[in-house]
Amino acid sequence: MWRYILKRLLMIIPVLVGVTFVVYMILSVAHGDPVQTILGDKATEEAQEQLRAELGLDRPLIVQYGNYIWDALHGDFGTSYKNQVDVMDQVLDRFPNTLLIAAGAILLSLVLGIPVGIISAKKQYSFIDNASMVGALFGVSMPAFWMGLLLVIVFSLKLRLLPSSGMNSESLGLLLKSMILPVIALSTYSLAMIARMTRSSMLEVIRQDYISTARSKGITEGQVTVRHMLRNALIPIITAVGLQFGTLVGGSIMTETVFSWPGIGRLIVESIKSRDIPMVMGSVIFLCVIFSMVNLLVDLLYAFVDPQIKSQYKGK
């Protein structure tokens, strides 16, 4: 088990190298000059050259990338080009905000998606099944930013119930209130996804022989559903949830932009706009590590749900 975890942790390294290289190259060849962004249009040639040398931007790309990685390996992710703050400080400062809505969204998806999937599967082809699956189709197809804009129009502009943007952390009540719309917008896709996943994986389990065995024991239908059906159906659902969580953290870019939510997604967007290479790199590396860790966690979670996988891990 521990060897397996170590192996998986080591496998994050090549992933990080690949991701950082691609992102660094794209940012460097993209249109726009960080030096001009920092100094403004009116700066002299000399001042620009001096700054460029200072930042190391006059050297070949591959050397720049190498230097960046070297520093990063020593825990130095650089300072922002824009406001000279430490990159990791800024990322760590923003990340909890993203985590807040991502966790909210995944929670909402689970609490609603799994029961909807179970009811749909148990009443297959009924009105309630058809209605929720059409709903889920909408949810999967609708882009998060579009959903976000619709929510703002209805709940902020028309009904004036909820704030349209920003994070209000003056009190817990206000914070929760400002979270509602971003969480709903962010969760739409994963909620629909999990509902569909739960339904199909329940349907696979529902006709298994061991369900007949369970029923023949004289236990209640609720016990059959939870203990026998859901526990078996859970394995593919966990995969979906794990992948969704990674996507939610990374994919919060759209939602955070629509709702001006001060999370890591919006930080990336702002930093890309101002060619703030260290900030973008720091954020991307951070997200990449989080994503890999969540995936590892999901794989380990399997072992708790599926005893066949648990016995595979043994001795590895």
């Binding site: 022989d209 061991y210 007949s212 065995t213 369970a214 599926d306």
Partner: peptide
């Protein structure tokens, strides 16, 4: 039941 291979719940 007929088939012992599939009549037991694999996760219990």
């Amino acid at each position: 039941f007929q088939d012992p291979m599939t009549s037991l719940n694999p996760v219990m």
